[in-house]
């Protein structure tokens, strides 16, 4: 009996081999290549020039700082708009709330370029000129559901008796919210922040479409360099972006990955 179980485990373990090879070739190697290109010059010799170029060229630097700013503001607006929505939804009757959450997520299934162009259409329709306003509207419009969903998930799972206990112990509504509901929902907030901040910081093409090429974000800088054959510089810029993302997720350690993976949108 025992032997058979072991053979089950032994054989099945090997089933992971094709995928491990696949991961090594298509995930690990390409990332190593980014490092390789970032630290070498055209002829393949080691250099740090690609990074010093970033410090010396104010243009790429400006775009970078501006993109971080856009990402922070977008994330903040999404949180401000999304938290009350998630809270309201979590207090609704479950069946109705589920339907409404689905309605919030639904636009996500439409190609984001079409969504973005739809935003442009809306601004054209209302005769509002494209610019910073349309940029932030488009970003919030694209990413708001990513904020609502994780916060709703956490709030909905919150043990209601904790809130009742706070009320019984004499907390006023404001105290209940700030001392009970808000602290309990922090994991949802932090994964929401990650799920909005990360795509916004790396977004590419949305800003151009929303502002008719007036505003450029860092993602586009990456793309332009790679497209113009500046692979080494492009790789260095990618590393800088990766570094920023790594730092944000370090600041945001509380299991945002698990919340994202748990998603179960379908």
């Amino acid at each position: 009996m025992k032997k058979q179980f072991l053979s089950f485990a032994g054989k099945r373990r090997n089933w992971s081999i094709p995928y491990i090879l696949f991961l090594v070739f298509f995930v690990v190697t390409p990332l190593v290549l980014i490092f390789y290109y970032a630290f070498t010059n055209h002829s393949g010799g080691f250099t740090l020039d690609n990074f010093s170029k970033f410090w010396q060229q104010p243009e790429a630097m400006h775009t970078f700082v501006f993109s971080v700013g856009v990402a922070i503001i977008t994330t903040f607006i999404c949180l401000l708009l999304g938290y009350p929505a998630a809270y309201i939804l979590s207090r609704m009757e479950i069946k109705r709330a589920k339907m409404l959450v689905l309605l919030f997520i639904l636009p996500m299934w439409v190609n984001f370029l079409i969504r973005t162009l739809a935003t442009v259409a809306l601004f054209d329709f209302l005769k509002i000129p494209l610019g910073q306003g349309s940029l932030y509207f488009g970003m919030v419009y694209n990413f708001l559901p990513f904020m609502i969903y994780p916060i709703y998930n956490i709030l909905q799972k919150t043990d209601y008796s904790l809130i009742e206990a706070a009320q019984d112990l004499g907390a006023n509504p404001r105290q209940v919210f700030f001392k009970t509901v808000l602290p309990l929902s922090i994991p949802g907030i932090s994964s929401g922040i990650m799920m909005v901040f990360m795509p916004v910081i790396s977004t590419f093409a949305i800003a151009e479409l929303l502002t008719i090429n007036n505003i450029k974000l860092f993602g586009t800088t990456l793309q332009e360099n790679i497209y113009n054959g500046m692979w080494n510089y492009g790789a260095a810029l990618s590393l800088i972006m990766l570094l920023l993302i790594g730092l944000t997720s370090l600041l945001n350690t509380k299991g945002s990955a698990s919340a994202a993976g748990e998603g179960g949108l379908i």
Partner: peptide
């Protein structure tokens, strides 16, 4: 270890995945 690597493409912004694969194919 495998699960960690499995999460990389999920957590990586798509532009990084894109550039890394581009570099793989061109090299």
């Amino acid at each position: 270890a495998v699960q960690l690597v499995n999460n990389i493409p999920i957590l990586n912004p798509d532009i990084i995945t894109a550039i890394s694969l581009f570099l793989l194919f061109v090299s």
